[in-house]
Design a protein around this nucleic acid. Structure first.
Lengths: 200, 200
DNA sequence: TTATTATGTGAATAATAATTCACATAAGGG
DNA sequence: CCCTTATGTGAATTATTATTCACATAATAA
């Protein structure tokens, strides 16, 4: 029997990536250590050389998702200085992330992830969701400063409403197995929303 | 050992109700046959006298949720003939349902419910979600006919946007364990949204 | 080259839960 | 009142998975 040894950093990345990929395909319930090991090309028990337990694997997956989301914000801000354009760009990046990689809603809104792990729920809420909303709100705030967005609106409310354009679209797309045209909805809804927040 | 025998209809209701209640408290993952049996006051195996298996219990729970949602639409429509008022009323009924009974998002968006059950996913999508959205769209359409709502908007888009006010609020409320003020958000967001859809 | 250590293997363990089954008993019709 | 049957019981069965462990081996440094 011959096999390859890789150092733990590489394996950790492989394992987290495999887990993310499995979740995209089969959901959290479809994720088990044996499946991860199979994809990585090792034996189940070998996973435990690189992660203490399954929970730590899940934490690594959450980190991957967080990176994706924050990267989108950065991209959108680099693309243009106009608040409205930034939001539109971010909207499209986000919905494409959701549509192209079904794992995000499958993980973030999964009970499994949190039941028996209040600390993880707290972490996801504050480090991922709230942090993301804060960044969106900051874009809004800058837009208000520059007289691109109505200044009588609360940036935090606007950022949650922004999420409200994406989230149902993502869920409907997911539940309908692609039948619901999430991207079209987001584009149409954005026009209406944009009108209602723009400076006048 | 003395015990009471009840007919299967009553037991089915009790079991479905107990299941819904457990899901509200502990999520789908916290739901097991033993827990249901304990609440109802019978032994786990007795559950199988009234339901073929756990899946059928879940289907019964879904029916309960569907009833709740549709009842809200009816209430809102009976309350007032004004489309905008109907939507506002429905919005508050819905968010209160979500906040008062955490089971709805916990179930509808739970992977567990669907993994390995594509037919159930299809049913929830078409019989619950889409059907609900259709009813909302119908309210919008009537509002357009009566010149209460802008007629250049697609009713289906508006209905999904309507959902977009509630859904993130519900999820944030849930994830933050009540810290996020969902009702306040819904009220604020509604004002902005209402303005953007009203006839002018 | 050799010794050390991190990584990999396969088998065993343990916990959780759904489901089945043989047997018991309450309820209601005849 | 009896007897049939639906309902209830407790124990056993089965399946699934995470996790551990003793042992093996590749990589690396001395």
């Amino acid at each position: 029997m011959s096999f390859e040894k890789l150092n733990t950093e590489i394996r950790q990345e492989q394992i987290a990536g495999a887990a993310l990929s499995i979740i995209s395909d089969a959901g959290l319930k479809g994720l088990n250590i044996a499946g991860i090991a199979r994809r990585v090309g090792i034996v189940p028990s070998a996973v435990y050389r690189h992660f203490k337990n399954k929970d730590e694997v899940l934490d690594a997956v959450l980190d991957l998702i967080q990176e994706n989301l924050f990267e989108n914000v950065k991209k959108a801000c680099e693309k243009t200085p106009d608040a409205s354009e930034r939001l539109r760009h971010l909207l499209m990046l986000h919905i494409n992330l959701v549509v192209g990689n079904r794992s995000i809603p499958r993980i973030i809104f999964s009970e499994d992830l949190y039941s028996g792990h209040p600390e993880r729920q707290k972490k996801v809420y504050s480090d991922i969701i709230t942090a993301y909303l804060k960044k969106v709100a900051e874009i809004v705030r800058l837009g208000q400063r520059d007289r691109q967005i109505r200044s009588d609106l609360d940036p935090d409310t606007v950022s949650v409403m922004f999420l409200g354009i994406i989230q149902p679209a993502g869920i409907l797309w997911h539940m309908s197995e692609g039948q619901f045209d999430a991207i079209r909805h987001v584009e149409t809804a954005w026009k209406i929303f944009k009108e209602s927040i723009q400076f006048r």
